[in-house]
Amino acid sequence: MVAVVSFFMISGYVMALLIEKHYGSVGRVGHFYLDRAARLFPQFWWYCLLGGLVLWWTGHRDVFSSGCTGGKVALNALAIPLNFFQFGNLESCMLIPPAWSLGLEITFYLVAPFFLLSPKTRWISLPASLLVFGAAYVGAIDSDMFGYRLLPGVLFIFLTGAAFSGRDRLSKIIPVTVWALAALSAVFFPPNDTTSPMIKEVLLGVVFAVPALAITRRLPHSKIDDMLGNLSYGIFLNHFLIIWALRHFGYEVGWAYFLILFFFPQPHSRRFLFT
Rank of each mutant, 00 (worst) to 15 (best):
L151N: 06
F146A: 15
G147D: 03
L130G: 12
G139A: 01
F146Q: 11
L155N: 11
Y148H: 14
A135W: 15
I141Q: 09
T160R: 00
L159T: 12
A136G: 06
F133Y: 10
A140N: 10
G161R: 00
S143H: 00
V138S: 07
S143Y: 01
G147Y: 11
G134Q: 11
I157F: 08
L151I: 06
I157R: 13
D142F: 09
T160P: 00
L155K: 06
P127I: 13
G139R: 00
P127F: 07
F156W: 15
A135L: 15
L150V: 07
M145A: 14
D144Q: 09
D142C: 11
A162S: 12
G161A: 00
V132P: 13
A128D: 03
T160V: 02
S129W: 03
S129C: 10
P127R: 10
G147A: 09
V138T: 14
S143G: 04
Y137D: 02
I141G: 08
D142A: 06
G134E: 07
V154R: 05
G139S: 03
L130W: 12
L159F: 07
S129A: 13
F158N: 00
F146Y: 15
A128C: 10
Y137E: 03
Y148D: 14
A163S: 15
G161F: 00
I157Q: 11
P152L: 14
V154A: 15
V138Y: 11
L131F: 15
F156Q: 12
T160E: 02
A135D: 10
Y148N: 12
L126K: 08
